[in-house]
Amino acid sequence: MNAAELKQDLIAYSKSIGIDKIGFAQATVFEELKQRLIVHEQKGYMSGFEEPDIEKRTNPDLLVPGAKSIISIALAYPSKLKDAPRSTKEDRRGIFCRASWGQDYHDVLRDRLKKLEAYILEKLPDAELKSMVDTGELSDRAAAERAGIGWSGKNCAIITPEFGSYVYLGEIITNIALPPDTPMEDRCGSCTICVDACPTGALVQGGQLDSSKCIAFLTQTKGFLEERYRKKLGNRLYGCDTCQTVCPENKGKDFHLHPEMEPDPEIAKPKLKPLLTMSNREFKEKFGHVSGSWRGKKPIQRNAIIALAHFKDTTAVPELTFLMQKDPRPVIRGTAAWALGVIGEAASLPDLKKALQQEQDEEARAEMEKGLALLQQ
């Protein structure tokens, strides 16, 4: 079997194991990306979650010596939540972004990549292969763009003609030489809808993201959230979909092709108040299988408190008061105190004053003072 035949064979096999799109690229250095990342780093736009070594992010040969090709794959995920539960005055709800619906996509894509690897090794036992999904060194988007999966949109997502940007990406770097596909032309044109709609202005310009301002990043941080971002958070518990939902290329795109990706409405859009006092075990049992759980319950609980403040939910005052008084974590105590101030129930005033007198943590004290000031207004 020659290289062209092997490529066609891999395309056919990929469809049989539930890969929605596959593309092939040469494993040369991503020079343009390298220069962009250098500027990105200089401007302080990194999130801290990515691979810090720019060389590893842009040079496949450092990951697989003698690398010749990159096989990029994409799996489409749902964009519409069937039977979505309604948020009520008594039971307000938060929302996880679409990339955290269903089973953790890292696991789903790794399953497909392992099957593809095993198939290649049956044909070529001496092949060198390295698979990656999201947390690997190489940029998934750069690989997918070069492999013709889609173009790199101004919302910093790969946009495919078939599935829009609602796709998960993964890739295999290999020393097998396979005929490359042709990259797609950029179809964003002069459209700036996503840039204009970004709640925090994190999309600095088309295709450039200041991660430190991105709500998707901010929801995953563990410390106090800067006050200027709290109103922007709304009821988001993990991630942000705004730059995808406003994209014209995503209009009408909703694919339910993989049972593992089907969301449980009660997990994708959970009630906020039960989240506040959930134990680690309860959190892992309910949310442990979704990608949004990877940072643990603390960021989710902090975001749930901010969401209750967003709703000015007076029914949550008892739970928030308990957290302010009893929770061992300063971030939770302080954020709960601030939320009580935003909700504005006068009955919270004595509790806030008492909590402030007892509080030892400086940052938590500052939040309690903010809460008091809001109440006294």
Rank of each mutant, 00 (worst) to 15 (best):
residue 324 M to T: 03
residue 44 G to S: 07
residue 142 A to S: 15
residue 96 F to N: 09
residue 195 V to A: 08
residue 67 A to P: 01
residue 61 D to F: 00
residue 92 R to D: 02
residue 274 P to Q: 11
residue 291 S to T: 08
residue 159 I to C: 00
residue 192 T to M: 14
residue 154 K to Q: 13
residue 72 S to H: 00
residue 157 A to H: 15
residue 216 A to P: 00
residue 45 Y to I: 01
residue 8 Q to N: 10
residue 286 K to V: 04
residue 237 L to D: 14
residue 218 L to M: 05
residue 323 L to M: 10
residue 247 C to K: 11
residue 243 C to W: 14
residue 301 Q to P: 07
residue 239 G to M: 09
residue 66 G to T: 01
residue 294 W to A: 11
residue 208 Q to G: 02
residue 308 L to H: 07
residue 35 Q to M: 11
residue 377 Q to T: 12
residue 128 E to R: 14
residue 129 L to N: 04
residue 206 G to W: 12
residue 366 A to I: 00
residue 359 E to Q: 05
residue 50 E to I: 05
residue 161 P to L: 02
residue 225 L to A: 14
residue 80 K to Y: 02
residue 375 L to N: 10
residue 148 G to F: 09
residue 176 I to Q: 01
residue 139 S to V: 06
residue 229 Y to H: 11
residue 58 T to V: 03
residue 144 A to Y: 00
residue 195 V to K: 14
residue 279 S to M: 14
residue 82 K to I: 09
residue 286 K to E: 06
residue 230 R to P: 08
residue 136 G to T: 10
residue 256 H to V: 11
residue 99 A to F: 06
residue 369 E to P: 04
residue 312 K to P: 03
residue 143 A to H: 08
residue 266 E to A: 01
residue 309 A to F: 05
residue 254 D to G: 13
residue 101 W to D: 07
residue 108 V to I: 13
residue 38 I to S: 12
residue 313 D to Y: 03
residue 165 S to R: 04
residue 55 E to H: 08
residue 287 F to S: 00
residue 262 E to D: 11
residue 116 L to I: 11
residue 20 D to K: 06
residue 256 H to K: 10
residue 372 L to V: 02
residue 94 G to V: 07
residue 246 V to L: 10
residue 80 K to T: 12
residue 97 C to P: 03
residue 108 V to K: 10
residue 170 G to N: 04
residue 136 G to L: 13
residue 107 D to E: 13
residue 182 T to H: 10
residue 281 R to W: 15
residue 48 G to T: 11
residue 84 A to W: 09
residue 36 R to C: 11
residue 270 P to A: 04
residue 229 Y to T: 11
residue 16 S to R: 15
residue 270 P to F: 03
residue 367 E to R: 14
residue 292 G to P: 08
residue 322 F to I: 05
residue 67 A to C: 00
residue 179 P to K: 07
residue 159 I to A: 01
residue 318 P to T: 05
residue 334 G to M: 05
residue 375 L to A: 07
residue 16 S to C: 08
residue 234 G to K: 09
residue 198 C to W: 14
residue 46 M to Q: 12
residue 88 T to C: 12
residue 118 A to K: 13
residue 146 R to S: 11
residue 9 D to K: 13
residue 299 P to K: 04
residue 289 H to Q: 15
residue 180 P to D: 03
residue 351 D to Y: 15
residue 345 E to A: 09
residue 246 V to K: 14
residue 303 N to Q: 11
residue 40 H to M: 12
residue 278 M to L: 15
residue 126 D to T: 13
residue 150 G to W: 02
residue 56 K to S: 02
residue 352 L to Q: 00
residue 18 G to M: 04
residue 295 R to W: 03
residue 329 R to Q: 15
residue 336 A to S: 14
residue 28 T to K: 09
residue 30 F to T: 10
residue 334 G to F: 07
residue 89 K to G: 04
residue 214 C to T: 07
residue 281 R to C: 05
residue 219 T to M: 06
residue 161 P to I: 06
residue 290 V to F: 08
residue 331 V to M: 04
residue 327 D to L: 01
residue 346 A to M: 02
residue 239 G to V: 13
residue 150 G to K: 00
residue 251 K to Y: 15
residue 360 Q to T: 09
residue 218 L to F: 06
residue 112 R to E: 00
residue 165 S to V: 10
residue 330 P to Y: 01
residue 350 P to D: 02
residue 345 E to T: 12
residue 365 R to A: 09
residue 191 C to Y: 06
residue 303 N to P: 03
residue 167 V to I: 15
